[in-house]
Design a binder for these strands. Structure first.
Length: 469
RNA sequence: GCCGGGGUGACAGAGCGGCUAAUGUGACCGACUGCAGAUCGGUUUCCAGGGGGUUCGACUCCCUCCCCCGGCACCA
């Protein structure tokens, strides 16, 4: 099946065709570690994690590269305010970020590239841009990109230079030749970290680190560039201008993907509004899989509204699917060879796998893919009720494993082993004996005791089944 | 102001020029049941922001208005 991907550059869905056979180079704008990772970051990275997972599932050899902008204005600002070194801040916030990503099962990144590890490439690009006439050094040792020299400026976001000048609400920096010009290199101010350059001490401007990183790893053109929509202008626009002018290769990126923003109860998330949700706080309140499921419940390009009640609701919704997975596990333990509902379940499994794949192939439509899983879950539950056999159940387990692998869900490890199964058989039998004697106190005592261990007993028409947490 | 993206049933949220608007949550009814849990069946939405237009037919395409969100070159 052809994968269709919405490309911001063309504003439509396109057939996904990698540049080099099955190899896919994918870059996603990472964090600037100047503050806590929040739930908006997490939405973006969960979305692109699924993109990478799905492409890999489809047989693509994806190299997923993400930058860490470990030198930037906001970081310096934080440094001044906190009295801590920028390296110290980077260490803390990157650590927190990676911890959150691990817990959210965002495990598909191949390499996190730190801006400051690419100084040679950054300087090379700036020098190259000056040599080609796309950039100029100002008196103070800063270097700017001359946007008037780049005809495609604005092609990604649809911005027009003249209109920006008309709508500008801030005074134009007088070191610049044109209002739209942006800094490639910023001259050092007192107390700021700095690196040597042909223009004196300074640091890279925001934007240049990403092209330095991608040109080094991917060359002048690569397959997918992702990020949240807020980065479209000026950040991604600047990347295009830098890279295409520097390498002379167009287009710099084949597919631009942008994820929708996250709101909190209908408002922008801000510390000053008191509605700021650090990722670690959200993870303290909800299970990582629930949060992940919440994000994937909407299409990645849609903005989503974050509200505790909505995440709770997603949790209830997700519990239904998780319950089906547990039911499958429990039923498989009974190991019937065949059942009356085998054919129905096997057909449903095939249908579900197909529907899931079709949804994912259509611009990674996780919401529709999840809808397919829900429909399938009902089929599974129905088949189990009627009675289904081992082969069909094994297929169902495999199907859920497939969904889970792509979405990063259903990862609960089952702790079953032979001893546990033997003990459970024994307990279930003892409880059944008690029930037959109408000794419900003993029966309920066994059930409650197991519940405390995370094991649920369910009495069904054709016997007891148990599920581990 | 300019650029981009949205406004769908109680809520969340998809698809599609034409079958009852997917799926989930919630609520209600029923089945199952010693109790519990899970599950199954059914019910609950029917001016899809307002107005115009195209069409045999629009939630889906076009125009317009309203509202919401993000971005808009300094860099706090």
């Amino acid at each position: 099946m052809t994968i269709r991907v919405y490309n911001t550059l063309s504003r439509r869905k396109e057939d996904f065709v990698p540049l080099h056979g099955r190899r896919v180079s994918m870059f996603v704008c990472g964090i600037t570690p100047y503050d806590a990772t929040h739930i908006g970051h997490a939405k973006t990275y969960v979305a692109f994690d699924v993109v990478a997972r799905y492409l890999r599932r489809k047989g693509y050899d994806v190299f997923y590269l993400q930058n860490v902008t470990d030198i930037e204005d906001r970081l310096i600002d934080r440094m001044h305010k906190s009295g801590r070194s920028w390296k110290d801040l980077v260490k803390e916030f990157v650590g927190e970020y990676l911890d959150g990503m691990t817990r959210l099962a965002c495990t598909s990144v191949n390499l996190y590239a730190y801006a400051t590890d690419y100084m040679p490439e950054i300087l090379e690009q700036i020098e190259g841009l000056i040599a080609k006439g796309f950039a100029y050094a100002a008196e103070d040792g800063s270097v700017y990109y001359d946007t008037t020299r780049y005809p495609d400026w604005g092609k990604l976001s649809g911005q027009k230079v003249e209109e920006h000048i008309a709508g500008a609400r801030v005074a134009v920096d007088e070191r610049k030749r044109n209002p739209a010009d942006f800094a490639l290199w910023k001259a050092q101010k007192p107390g700021e970290p700095a690196w040597d350059s042909p223009w004196g001490k300074g640091r890279p401007g925001w934007h240049i680190e990403d092209t330095a990183i991608t040109v080094r790893h991917f060359g002048p053109r690569y397959d997918i560039h992702g990020g949240a929509t807020e980065l479209m202008f000026p950040h991604h626009e600047a990347e295009i201008a830098q890279a295409e002018a520097f390498t002379g290769v167009k287009p710099f990126v084949n597919v631009w993907m942008h994820g929708g923003m996250l709101m909190v109860s209908g408002e922008e998330m801000h510390k000053s509004l008191g509605n700021f949700w650090a990722l670690k706080d959200a993870l303290a309140r909800w299970e990582p899989e629930v949060l992940r499921f919440f994000y994937l419940n909407a299409h990645y390009r849609s903005p989503i509204d974050f509200a505790p009640e909505l995440v709770d609701e997603a949790g209830r919704s997700y519990a239904r699917l998780r319950e089906t997975v547990r039911t499958i596990d429990a039923e498989r333990r009974r190991t019937p060879d065949a059942g009356s509902a085998d054919a129905a379940l096997r057909a449903a499994t095939a249908t579900a796998l197909e529907a899931f794949d079709a949804a994912m192939a259509d611009d990674f439509n996780t919401r529709e893919a999840i809808a397919a899983i829900f429909e399938y879950a009902r089929s599974v539950n129905k088949a189990v009720e009627v009675g289904t056999g081992r082969v069909a159940l094994d297929e169902a387990a495999t199907a859920f494993a497939r969904f889970g692998e792509v979405l990063g869900l259903f990862a609960r490890a089952s702790a079953d082993d032979a001893v546990v199964e033997g003990l459970m058989d024994l307990l279930v039998r003892l409880r059944e004996d008690a029930r037959k004697r109408k000794d419900f106190a003993t029966a309920d005592g066994i059930r409650e005791g197991l519940a405390k261990l995370g094991i649920v007993l369910e009495d069904t028409r054709d016997g007891v089944r148990w599920k581990s947490a």
